[in-house]
């Protein structure tokens, strides 16, 4: 009877080890993704270092589904730069170009007006009611780099959540069933 119990014990321990390994490898994937994201936040100084272009207001420069890399340095905002900004009361950040800048002599604060390259008029209609200028705190970062098409993955996932769940399910299944 002794050897049966022993082998049962060994099987059980193997099983536990396997489950543990899988849990660890799953945790590794999740945490490394988190580390990369947070690391990018540190390096770029922007609260969201990568954004997906959602509208065609900057065409033909940026199309829907393109990815922009943001950078938030200490340098003041200047005309011509492409900035990503948040309007109070609006959830989705906007990517547009700066066309006017007024920088205060004493405080160094800036008043900024933006416009989409493909839009007819400036952005005052998009701003909060009665708002004429953007200030520094509205601005999340300036675009420094560009990668076409990659953002379609996120657009598809947000617009068709079923695909997202299918993808997550399949990946989870793969991780759990993988033997090595």
């Amino acid at each position: 009877m002794g050897w049966i119990g022993e082998s049962l014990e060994s099987i059980r321990s193997i099983h536990i080890r396997q489950v543990l390994t899988q849990a660890v490898s799953l945790g590794m994937i999740v945490t490394s993704a988190l580390i990369i994201w947070k690391g990018l936040m540190c390096v770029t100084g922007s609260e969201s270092p990568v954004v997906v272009v959602l509208s065609g207001s900057m065409e033909p420069g940026f199309k829907r589904g393109d990815i922009l890399f943001l950078h938030m340095s200490k340098e003041p905002i200047r005309a011509g730069e492409i900035v990503v900004f948040n309007i109070d009361g609006r959830e989705i950040p906007i990517v547009h170009r700066v066309i006017k800048v007024h920088e205060r002599q004493d405080t160094g604060e800036v008043d900024v007006l933006t416009k989409g390259d493909n839009n007819f008029g400036d952005d005052r209609l998009l701003y909060a009611h009665g708002q004429l200028w953007l200030q520094q705190h509205h601005i999340m970062g300036r675009a420094v780099g560009f990668l076409p098409y990659v953002g379609w993955v996120t657009i598809i996932m947000t617009e068709k959540p079923i695909i997202k769940y299918l993808l997550i399910g399949a990946l989870g299944l793969l991780v759990i069933t993988s033997k090595e």
Binding site: R78, A79, G80, I99, K100, H102, E103, R104, D117
Partner: peptide
């Protein structure tokens, strides 16, 4: 009042 004023007058792609 302002250390710098930049006003875009014309642009093109």
């Amino acid at each position: 009042q302002n250390a710098l004023n930049q006003i875009s007058l014309w642009d093109a792609i």
